[in-house]
């Protein structure tokens, strides 16, 4: 029953996310509202970590599978992409590398310059 209860709590936050998505006219999906709400609920101890933990870990573990059905939908996009695929694919692949590298280097830099403590310090500190 543990899993049923935990999955129920997770669905409850997904549903709350849906409600906010319907009420607030912003392009923010139910999942993001739900994530922020669950985080807030954990942070304020409205619910305990144990109330969702095992089911949450399981769902996150199998998450890569959940992207497959929509990604297979790429097979239907060929008609639209046919004329523009080269610049689109080049921009998409290049920008993924550039954004990842710049973001990582910048964050490393910000961490080093006192905007946070490095992981090692955090691990050994306190």
């Amino acid at each position: 029953m543990k899993y049923v209860k935990q999955f129920g709590v997770i669905l409850f936050f997904s549903f709350l996310g849906e409600v906010l998505n319907a009420l607030i006219p912003l392009p923010i999906p139910a999942s993001i509202y739900g994530l922020l709400l669950l985080f807030t609920a954990l942070f304020t101890h409205i619910i305990s970590l144990e109330a969702v933990y095992d089911a949450a870990k399981f769902l996150i573990e199998i998450m890569p599978l959940m992207f497959i059905p929509a990604s297979v939908g790429l097979m239907t996009s060929w008609g639209i992409l046919k004329g523009v695929w080269l610049p689109v694919v080049v921009i998409t692949l290049l920008s993924t590398v550039v954004v990842m590298a710049v973001t990582g280097k910048c964050t490393d830099l910000f961490l080093k310059h006192g905007l946070g403590k490095s992981e090692n310090e955090t691990r050994t500190g306190i």
């Binding site: 739900g34 994530l35 669950l38 769902l59």
Partner: peptide, 8 residues
């Protein structure tokens, strides 16, 4: 959606 919520 539930899995994304769990990222919290």
């Amino acid at each position: 959606t539930p899995a994304t919520v769990c990222l919290a």
